[in-house]
Simulated scan of single mutants.
Amino acid sequence: MPFITNKKAKRPVDIFYEDYGTGQPVILIHGWPLSRKMWEQQVWKIVDEGFRCISYDRRGFGISSQPWENYDYSALASDLHALIEDLDLSDAVIVGFSMGGGEVVRYLTDFGSDRIAKAALISSIIPLVKKKDDNHDGVPEDALDDIKNALQKDRVGFLKEFGKGFYNFDDNKDRVSQAQLDYDFTIASFASPRATIQTALAWSHTDFRSELKNVDVPTLIVHGDADETVPKATSADQAAKGIADNTYEVIEGAPHGLHLTHSEKLNELLISFLKK
């Protein structure tokens, strides 16, 4: 099975990846608390359209290494950098879903865009989740503390309910099956408990607003206007104002997990952007 090792990490970290197709490389960065497996409906389409599609498991998730420490965004971006260097990729497109949007922005901040042609932020947390005096649409800090406490007290119980909200399940039962919820739950529950909490702290408290200027490549922003997990007012709306060269697409009625509920529309937007 293919792994790359981030030897520049404080302790070496092994990152599992899948690599299909040929052509311009498109790197898919998964959301919290899932794994590369969330991209099932995108991988085949990207490959069929003539691109090389690479997806990987973030440290602590899937079958990548599960270290105890170092889940800040610079550490996570260093794993992406190691993958790009190890596979000697150039002219790559980096696509981040939800918390994966943070890796996109931090990668461009820490490593620049020499190897990057384009970027995409899908249902992304960028630039800031937490409510502040200058971010009134954000999530109140006590609600974020409740997430951390729930993960510490009953992680799997929290994840079971979180999966329903991810897809606005009651409104999308014709688009997402109970089996899909069970599948996602299995993926999430087998992630490192430590990583699940530490990465939640990273996505809930990291402020990327000052880093948006570092996104100096054409960028696709896609968000659902029914996203209850990461409301677009605190994320995509602000990202579109702060990223100079962006294409902003709002999918009507789409929840956070639009990669499944609205996969055809997302694929259409993504492929169109890749081929521009």
Results as ranks from 00 to 15, higher is better:
176 V>Y: 01
203 W>L: 08
182 D>P: 04
199 T>N: 04
193 P>R: 07
197 I>M: 08
197 I>E: 14
197 I>H: 07
187 I>D: 12
172 N>K: 01
187 I>F: 03
189 S>C: 09
186 T>E: 15
195 A>I: 08
200 A>E: 09
190 F>A: 13
188 A>T: 02
202 A>N: 12
203 W>V: 02
181 L>W: 00
172 N>M: 05
197 I>F: 09
190 F>E: 15
195 A>G: 14
202 A>D: 12
184 D>W: 15
194 R>D: 10
177 S>W: 14
192 S>W: 12
182 D>W: 03
178 Q>Y: 08
174 D>S: 11
180 Q>I: 15
197 I>V: 15
188 A>F: 05
196 T>P: 06
202 A>W: 02
176 V>F: 05
195 A>P: 07
181 L>R: 00
173 K>M: 12
175 R>V: 03
194 R>L: 09
178 Q>A: 10
175 R>W: 03
184 D>Q: 13
178 Q>K: 11
203 W>Q: 01
176 V>S: 02
197 I>D: 02
177 S>F: 12
202 A>G: 02
184 D>P: 05
183 Y>S: 09
186 T>F: 09
188 A>E: 02
183 Y>A: 06
177 S>D: 08
190 F>W: 09
192 S>Q: 12
196 T>W: 04
195 A>Q: 08
200 A>M: 14
180 Q>M: 14
195 A>R: 12
183 Y>P: 01
193 P>W: 07
182 D>A: 11
198 Q>W: 04
195 A>D: 04
188 A>D: 10
204 S>R: 03
200 A>P: 02
199 T>D: 02
189 S>L: 02
201 L>E: 15
200 A>R: 10
173 K>W: 04
179 A>Q: 15
200 A>D: 01
193 P>T: 05
183 Y>E: 14
193 P>H: 07
183 Y>G: 01
182 D>L: 07
192 S>R: 13
193 P>F: 07
184 D>G: 15
199 T>H: 02
184 D>S: 09
187 I>N: 07
202 A>H: 06
180 Q>C: 05
180 Q>K: 13
184 D>R: 08
193 P>V: 08
197 I>P: 05
191 A>V: 06
203 W>F: 15
192 S>K: 11
197 I>K: 08
172 N>E: 11
194 R>Q: 14
176 V>D: 04
189 S>H: 03
186 T>I: 09
187 I>S: 04
189 S>G: 13
188 A>M: 08
176 V>T: 02
177 S>C: 11
201 L>W: 03
182 D>K: 03
202 A>R: 03
190 F>C: 12
172 N>W: 00
201 L>A: 10
198 Q>G: 00
179 A>M: 13
196 T>A: 00
198 Q>D: 12
179 A>W: 09
193 P>Q: 08
200 A>S: 11
199 T>A: 06
179 A>P: 07
187 I>C: 05
200 A>I: 00
174 D>R: 00
198 Q>K: 15
189 S>P: 13
197 I>L: 14
201 L>P: 00
174 D>L: 03
192 S>G: 12
175 R>K: 15
186 T>A: 14
197 I>R: 06
198 Q>N: 13
